[in-house]
């Protein structure tokens, strides 16, 4: 059986059009090749984790998905359609993708509630009442109902990141992009953010997660992609990547992290 055939058999909704498909993506910064030629797919309802050393290009790949980074070659297909060239159309695509940043990037001049309502109000033009209703429900979901009127500066890192997740979910996206969501957090608040993400995964949200949290990737991911120096070293189900890695560089990377299964 070819690798492709095995992938089709083993992956969630592999028979459907992928939600996100990367076809021979190239990303250059001047002369520097940030992403060589990368192809991968993300199916509906899957949690795909991108792992690998810092500076290997995994965050860059994630940021090409909603066109925060331009690509110099290849195609990105969203629901089977290439990312549109026009800015106005890219905005439509971005509305379907929630993004969570390493440094939270909450809006410091807005309250927690306003952070969550500003997207739906500005972009989706929903009513004030509807936006508020959504925000209140989402705050409950991430366990921060009592913080609605606080400003981000008054929250811990973990709380801020949970608000950032709620802000992204308020747009009712089809896909959630997580760019090292726990890398800027104190160890004791990492768990609360991962728990929210885990619950989201259980609800069937399609998620692409750049992470250094190997335990999370092992337990929650449906598919793991290992990056090194701008290209994919290996991809497969977590059982393969973590218990029986095929590539030497995967083994090296995991042993550097002290991963022992």
């Amino acid at each position: 059986m070819t690798a492709m055939a095995a992938e089709l058999q083993n992956r969630k909704n592999a028979d459907q059009t992928p939600v996100v498909e990367y076809r021979s993506i190239r990303k250059l910064y001047g002369e520097f090749v940030a992403i060589g030629s990368v192809s991968a797919r993300v199916n509906k309802g899957e949690v795909v984790c991108l792992i690998g050393p810092s500076g290997s290009g995994k965050s860059t790949l994630l940021r090409t998905t909603n066109a925060l980074e331009e690509i110099q070659g290849g195609d990105i297909l969203i629901d089977g359609k290439p990312l549109p060239p026009k800015k106005a159309d890219i905005r439509k695509v971005r509305q379907q993708m929630g993004m969570v940043f390493q440094n939270f990037e909450l809006f410091p001049h807005k309250t927690v509630l306003e952070n969550i309502t500003v997207g739906p109000l500005t972009v989706l033009k929903v009513s004030e009442q509807e936006a508020r209703k959504r925000a209140v429900a989402l705050l409950e979901k991430v366990g921060l109902s009592d913080k609605a009127d606080k400003y981000p500066a008054n929250l811990s890192g973990g709380q801020q990141q949970r608000v950032a997740i709620a802000r992204a979910l308020a747009m009712q996206p089809d896909v959630m992009l997580f760019d090292e969501p726990t890398s800027a957090l104190d160890p004791e608040t990492i768990g609360e953010v991962l728990n929210v993400m885990k619950r989201l995964a259980e609800e069937g949200m399609t998620m692409i997660v750049v992470t250094h949290e190997m335990t999370f990737a092992r337990r929650v991911a449906d598919w793991v992609i290992v990056f090194d120096r701008g290209s994919i070293v290996e991809q497969g189900p977590p059982a393969q990547i973590f218990d029986n890695p095929q590539a030497d560089r995967t083994r090296d990377f995991l042993s550097h992290l002290g991963w022992d299964g």
């Binding site: 993004m99 440094n103 990037e105 809006f107 500003v118 997207g119 972009v123 802000r167």
Partner: peptide
């Protein structure tokens, strides 16, 4: 920070 603009763009806002 540039991240503030990116967060706004990621929500689907225009520049």
């Amino acid at each position: 920070r540039k991240g503030q603009t990116e967060a706004a763009l990621a929500l689907g806002m225009s520049q």
